[in-house]
């Protein structure tokens, strides 16, 4: 080992240090590029009430002015299993992997991945 080091030039050593540094940097850069673990955020009346990990299956109930909303997380998707608002639009929305399920009458908002991105491709926002 000592012989190997003795046989390298300064340039060799600098290159070696650079390669190590670049590899280490690469770990951090690729980690940033990876999608982070997603959360399911439940807001009631505009305030965050619960946060759950998307990768843990569970069923739980969320209280609201019009009654309890049953929410299910399974296979990295979320749905409203049972709602007690009048039109039950939130139930009809079914399983959602990204975006949000909203029950406006019950003031419950379930956001997946922290980003409620339901816009179609090529569209940045929708009016109406």
């Amino acid at each position: 080992m000592k012989a190997v080091i003795r046989n390298t030039t300064v340039a060799d050593r600098l290159l070696f240090i650079f390669l190590i540094a670049a590899s280490v940097a690469g770990i951090f850069i690729s980690r940033e590029a990876m999608p982070k673990g997603s959360d399911v955020i439940i807001e009631i009346g505009g305030k965050t009430a619960y946060t759950f990990a998307l990768d843990t299956d569970r069923t739980f109930s969320v209280p609201g002015p019009l009654g309890v909303t049953i929410v299910e997380i399974k296979g990295r998707k979320v749905r409203v299993k049972e709602a007690h608002c009048h039109n039950r639009l939130c139930e009809k929305q079914g399983w959602v992997a990204r975006g949000a399920i909203v029950c406006l009458p019950n003031r419950v908002v379930i956001s997946v991945g922290g980003k409620a991105d339901n816009t179609p491709k090529g569209i940045d926002a929708i009016t109406g």
């Binding site: 807001e43 909203v102 406006l104 003031r107």
Partner: peptide
Amino acid sequence: KKTKPFMDTL
């Protein structure tokens, strides 16, 4: 992009 509920809407 980030979304949050306010004023009874998103």
